[in-house]
Design a protein around this nucleic acid. Structure first.
Length: 187
DNA sequence: CGGCAGATACGCT
DNA sequence: GCGTATCTGCCGT
């Protein structure tokens, strides 16, 4: 079983490092290890959930263990894992994956030969795993996209920093990544 | 490799 | 209208 996702996002985010995302597309299986995450919650002006429930953000307020996929910049998808209690509006943004299986398939989807650049960013990994709006609200305990237990990352191998790409609450230390991992977006 | 512009749709003011 | 939890290509060093 995956770590308890009913906890606050800033606690789940570091504990999700090392977990695996398993994606089934037709007969192919793609697996990536989570190496970088960020926490967002309702008390946070940088979070989509800050202004309450809307059609777009309602998944964030639902039960934990579901996928919140949003579209931004007119062309990119990003994927979150919903955390916390029902009604709380919190989630963990998956910012980077280390490709484990199905690398050739990911290369094709990304049109990118260099493995390091296949999934080292939130929109890149959605391209690599073919994650779109269809998977918004998907239960991550079931195919075609599952969150499963991977390696355990010890606390001393987790680096904590401020978050990337936001203009509010930039001082919150809510970004986490695996120390020394080459597939992190910005080490 | 670092910095910058451009792409481009949609939710919310 | 405006700003966006981003990426890529193009430029200069």
């Amino acid at each position: 079983m995956i770590s308890d996702l009913s906890r606050p996002a800033y606690e789940c985010a570091p504990s999700l490092l090392g977990a695996l995302l398993v994606r089934n597309i037709d007969k192919f299986t793609i697996i990536g290890k989570i190496v970088e995450t960020e926490a967002y919650d309702q008390s946070d002006t940088a979070s989509h959930s800050y202004r309450g429930v809307t059609p777009r953000t309602k998944v964030m307020f639902g039960p934990s263990g579901f996928a919140y996929v949003y579209f931004t910049y007119g062309m990119h998808y990003c994927m979150n894992i919903v955390t916390g209690q029902v009604g709380e509006g919190s989630a963990v943004l998956v910012r980077a994956l280390e490709p484990i299986e199905g690398i050739e398939y990911m290369r094709m989807l990304r049109k990118q030969a260099n493995v390091v650049h296949i999934a080292n960013g939130p929109a890149k990994l959605c391209q690599a795993l073919k994650i779109t709006r269809d998977l918004n609200g998907h239960d991550l305990s079931k195919p075609p996209l599952q969150l499963v237990v991977g390696e355990t990352v010890s606390a001393e191998d987790i680096v904590t920093t401020t978050r990337i790409g936001i203009s509010q609450n930039t001082d919150r230390p809510w970004r986490f990544y695996i120390k020394g991992n080459n597939f992190v977006s910005k080490p």
